[in-house]
Each structure stands twice: as C-alpha cells, then as structure tokens.
Design a protein around this nucleic acid. Structure first.
Lengths: 218, 218
DNA sequence: TACGGTACCAACAGCGTGTTGACATAGTCA
DNA sequence: TGACTATGTCAACACGCTGTTGGTACCGTA
C-alpha cells in the first residue's frame, strides 16, 4: 500500500493507534451500530445519541455523517434491496420446460436475502409510513418487481401455457404484496404467521394456482 | 355504535345539561376529531394539543379522557373491527351450491367496511408497529379471521369440493395477509397498487384458484 | 352548606431533536 | 516553515412535544 518512502514516515511517527479513525470507518460504524440495535428495537426507540455512542462519536458529530436517523436506515435499505435484486434476477430465470422452477427460485431468492437482513426489512416497512424517501425507494423497487412479474405472466399467457383471468398487472400487484406481507409477518414474528420452512411452498402454491389455474369469475 | 366490549367500559355519565358539554360529548368529540385529522395526516404528525383543541378542551384535559393518542386510535379501531366482523359474518355465509358467492361476499364485506374508515385502517396498521395494544387487538382479530378461513377451506376439502395442497392454516394466513396488504395499499394510495374497482375480483381470483385448484408442488 | 365526584387548566419537568460556533488535526501549497 | 483549507469533533443552546402536578370551578346529593 504505502509505496512512497515519505508516506510511512508520516504514518509511523505520529499516527499510531491513538489517532482518530477515518471518516469512512465512522460512517460504517454508524451503519453497523444501527443494524445491530435494530435487531432488538425499532428505529423510533433508538435515539441518535445511542447510534453516535455506538460508533464512538458524540451526537452532534453524528450529524456530520448523516442528516437523520432515517437517512441511516435508507442507506441500509438501499444495500439490502440491491442485494435482493441481484439475487432474484441473477441468472435471468428462463421459463423453460419446467413451470415451477423459475418462480420458486425467484421467491426463494427474496426470502433468503431479506431473512438475512430481517431487522432492516422490518424497520424499513415501518419507516415507509413516516418517511417519504423510504416510501419512494420501496415504491420504485416494488414497481420494478411487479413489472417483471406482470411481463412473466403475460408471456405465459401469450405462449398459451397460462389462461387469461384478471389483468396480469393487478394479479402481479396482489401476489407481490402478499409476498411482502407474509415475509414481514414471519420476520417480525407476528401472530398470526407461519413457520419459516413453510413460507416458500405456501407462497408458491398461491402464485402458481392463480397464474396457471385461474377460476372463471361470475 | 358501541358494539365493542372494550369500548363501553363503565363511563356511565348521563348528560347533565350544564353550561359545559358533558363528558360523553367531549369523548366523542375527541374521537371525531381524531378520525377527521387522520384523513390528512398520520397519528404521529398529530399532536395531543390538536386533538384537544379540536374537541374544545385543553391538552391536560385530554388526559382526563384518554391516557394517550394511541388509546384514542385503539377505541376507533375497536369500533371499526366490530363493524367489519359483523358485516363479514352476519348471515353466516353457507357453502351452498355456489362456490364463489360466499367467498365474494365475505371479501366484499371487509373491503366495504374498511373503505368507509380508511383513515382508521391506515393509522392502525402504522400504530401496530409501535403500540402493543393495537398489535394485540389486530392479532386477535386476524387470528379469528384466519381460523374461520382455515375451517372453511378444510370443510371444502372434507366435502371433496377442494383438493388438498399446502396446509389449510398456512394458506389461510397467506390469503388473509394478502387481503390486508392489498387493501392497505389501495386505501393509502400507494404506488404500486390497483384501482378500487379491481380489488375484490383480483383477491377473489387468488383465493378461489389457490383453494380449489392448487397445483402439485415438486 | 358542605361534600365529593366530575371536569378543567396553568405551569413545570423531562427527553429527544436539530443547530451553532468554536476548536482540533492532517494534508497542501507558497 | 508557516499560512491556508479540509475534514472532524463537540459543548451548549433553542425548540417542540409529552406526561404530570397541584390547584380551581362546577354540580348533584344529603
């Protein structure tokens, strides 16, 4: 790393472990503290002072790195969402011979990713109500998933493998919202919810039935 | 409309015609003010002072009637839930010849009732995260609807009109959570959601497909 | 008339947020 | 080297909202 001879002079002489951590380290420390504390309590129950102390700085200094608690959560959510997006659409699941497999893989990918960051997922769902930026980020993300779902449903209908029913868009919205809500219930350990092991099978059952075997409504 | 058990606890003040409005009138005024203000803003954005002013009293006097903002919402929610419960299970929808009709009527009943009190519904969903009493009330209510759904699904399976698939309980949980989430999205005018006219048909489609035409999972 | 329950509020205490202004330290350039 | 600028840092303040205290006014009953 330190290629120049003048660089380690400065490093070795003065800046032993006693000197201040860098700004980047501080920012990461705040993020890590936030995710850690969110495992136990909601964001509104966590004060900025706690976040700051956890990162080894004072409350006013917190404002140097983030404009608010919510901004911290927004950063965390951004990371998790990017991870989920990458996981769910990485190998561009093709509708080959098997009808079930690609749907199962996509649902599983979301489930696994959000389960790994359940604290962030639950906190974000709550913050959505009060914070316009979180709401907007989540809306954008949901919208993109809904559109992919709608396109996949429409493709199946066009291929003749799925019959028509309610508009593909509405069905896609309902199914994606169901996934969001069921996963949230499981992660937040709500009453009523279901065992983690049952989540993917149950959701998949509902998706496949309503896409491939819609009933004719009166 | 004191249908609820928790709402009509012993506050049997009769209306003495004084210069001041009676306690009952004040309490109702607070409830009415709350529902009115909730149409525009979330509960956390409404101060107790506003609630008090709206009811024509001072902030400390508010505490004479309710221990907190959340208690006001809890009372409102109690009323709406009682109304929905009554509407959805009033004529004890029988599974007669028609498979679709009873499910459609139940889903429609919920939709109509909550739509009439959308502000309370949306506020309650938000308060659930932070308030244990709201959470508990909603959990109890959802649990009872899930149980009724599970029993109805199981009855259809026992009669041979619906094949087996995932456990009836898990399916009932997923379907009820979907209804909750979709209605919330519509009432809160979220992006993505759907037109109000499409809600019942879309939800019904998913319910009937997954109950009567479950696919065989791998 | 006086007593107790109901209804009411001014004022206070406490907590959390967001801001200000001053100060420290490290790198840069004259 | 010494002055300038960036980046960090924080004690102390202003503010808004919540929940409480301690006291007042009204009214039905005995």
């Amino acid at each position: 790393m330190s290629l120049s001879p003048t660089a380690d002079k400065a490093r070795l002489t003065r800046s032993r472990r006693g000197s201040r951590p860098s700004g980047d380290e501080r920012e990461l420390a705040i993020l890590a503290t936030a995710e850690r504390l969110l495992a136990d309590r909601s964001l509104s129950e966590i004060s900025i002072d706690e976040l700051a102390r956890g990162a080894g700085i004072s409350r006013p200094t917190f404002y140097f790195y983030f404009p608010s608690k919510d901004a911290v959560l927004l950063t965390l959510l951004d990371q998790v969402v990017a991870e989920a997006d990458a996981a769910a659409f990485a190998p561009a699941h093709e509708m080959a011979g098997d009808q079930e497999k690609p749907w199962r893989e996509a649902i599983t990918a979301f489930f696994v990713t959000f389960r790994a960051h359940r604290a962030v997922a639950v906190a974000a769902a709550q913050a959505r109500a009060s914070n316009p930026e979180v709401r907007q980020l989540w809306a954008r993300v949901m919208e993109s998933w809904v559109q992919r779902t709608e396109e996949a449903i429409q493709a199946e209908r066009d291929r003749g493998t799925a019959p028509s029913g309610v508009p593909a868009r509405d069905l896609a919205v309902a199914l994606n919202l169901m996934n969001e809500r069921v996963m949230h219930a499981v992660f937040a350990e709500e009453q009523p919810s279901m065992r983690e092991a049952q989540v993917v099978d149950t959701l998949l059952q509902v998706w496949l039935s309503s896409i491939y075997h819609p009933v004719a409504l009166a």
